[in-house]
Simulated scan of single mutants.
Amino acid sequence: MAKFDWDDLRYILAVAAAGSLAGAARSLGVNHTTVLRRIGAFETKHGLRLFERLPSGYELTAGGEELIATARRIDATVTDLERKLAGQDLRLSGTVRVTTTDTLMGSILPEILKGFRDAHPGIEIEIAISNAFLNLTRRDADVAIRPAKNPPETLVGRRIAKVAFAIYGQRRYLARRKTKDFAAHRWILPDDSLANTAAAQWLAAELPEVEVALRTDSFLAAAQGARAGIGLAVLPCYLGDSLSDLVRIEGPVAAMETALWILTHEDLKPVARIRAFTDFAAEAFKKRRALLEGGKSR
């Protein structure tokens, strides 16, 4: 029996999940030719064809399906072990990978990261920008900092403050369109990927028939569109109030309110560098509570 290389499982699982070499390569951070070589070498070595190469992508064969089921169980066990081992790390050094939103990184968070680095120069921060929760159970990130009404039950942490939302427009745009009737304005609206947010739900309920000038999957992009004078936009106050060329014309709107959370996985709570980061970030955000809650303190 040929010796099994456990690292091959990462490549097999990535191709199965993505359905393509390119998608697997992106998720693994390698060149697609590396993925092709590793998959081909595994199939040759073990005499097993894992994937059908179809025009639509890579699909698992029956034998591949059987192996993947076992590989996923092994992967879950290894990930759990890595997380528990990481939880024993008492060093104030190493890397903390943080997932957060583009709006926080485009406003408040950089100065907080600067303060943390000054206090803990031995800890490296990695930032993953995403408007959805990354999988902290699988260590896609160590810490999540993001607005949410109901964070995943698998994560632990603290609620920092309310997050207020309001309606903003560019000063020159508002000078041209003096009407207070929102239905008479052009709008920058969230696309379907943000449909579950309280802001998108409020807009759909209160302003169902408006002129849509732009749709976007990013509140930061909406802010930039508003700054260019494209139309009005709903934005978190911590972002909108920090941009001098935007004017808050309505709000905060209570129905759009959410909360800011700092979260991690329970197994990672004892890690010294993660605890240091979450404690520092929590205190830093609390000092900016007025900005988060729409009080315009900057």
Rank of each mutant, 00 (worst) to 15 (best):
A2S: 15
A2L: 15
F4Q: 10
D5E: 10
W6Y: 13
A17P: 04
A17H: 08
S20F: 01
S20R: 01
S20W: 01
L21H: 05
A24R: 01
R26F: 02
S27V: 00
L28Y: 08
L28Q: 11
G29H: 02
G29R: 07
G29S: 02
V30T: 06
T34H: 14
V35P: 03
R38Q: 12
I39R: 02
G40H: 06
K45N: 07
H46V: 09
F51N: 06
R53K: 04
P55A: 10
P55L: 09
S56M: 11
L60N: 04
A62W: 04
L67A: 12
A69Q: 15
A69I: 14
T70V: 14
A71K: 12
R72Y: 10
R73V: 11
I74F: 12
I74N: 06
D75F: 04
T77G: 02
D80E: 13
L85I: 05
G87W: 12
G87S: 12
Q88H: 11
L90V: 09
R91M: 10
R91N: 08
S93V: 01
S93W: 01
V96E: 00
V96Q: 00
T101C: 03
T101Y: 04
D102L: 01
G106R: 00
I108T: 14
E111A: 13
L113R: 09
G115T: 03
G122F: 13
I127Y: 03
I127W: 09
I129C: 00
F133S: 03
L136S: 09
L136Y: 07
R138L: 11
R139A: 00
A141N: 02
A141H: 05
D142I: 00
I145F: 03
A148Y: 09
A148V: 06
K149Y: 13
K149G: 14
E153T: 10
T154N: 13
L155N: 07
G157L: 11
R158Q: 15
A161S: 15
A161W: 12
K162T: 10
A164P: 09
F165W: 03
Q170C: 10
R172G: 00
A175M: 05
A175R: 11
R177I: 05
R177Y: 14
A183E: 12
L189A: 10
L194C: 11
N196A: 15
T197Q: 10
A204Y: 06
E206C: 07
L207Q: 06
E211M: 15
E211S: 15
V212W: 09
L220R: 00
L220W: 04
A223R: 05
A223W: 03
Q224I: 00
G229C: 02
G229N: 01
I230V: 13
L232E: 03
V234K: 08
V234N: 03
P236Q: 11
L239S: 02
D241W: 02
S242A: 15
S242D: 08
L243N: 00
V247R: 12
E250W: 13
G251P: 14
W261V: 07
W261C: 10
T264I: 02
H265M: 08
H265Q: 08
E266S: 06
D267V: 01
L268F: 02
A272G: 09
A272F: 10
R273E: 07
I274T: 02
F277E: 03
T278C: 08
T278Y: 02
A281F: 02
A282H: 06
E283I: 03
A284P: 00
F285S: 08
E293S: 07
E293G: 04
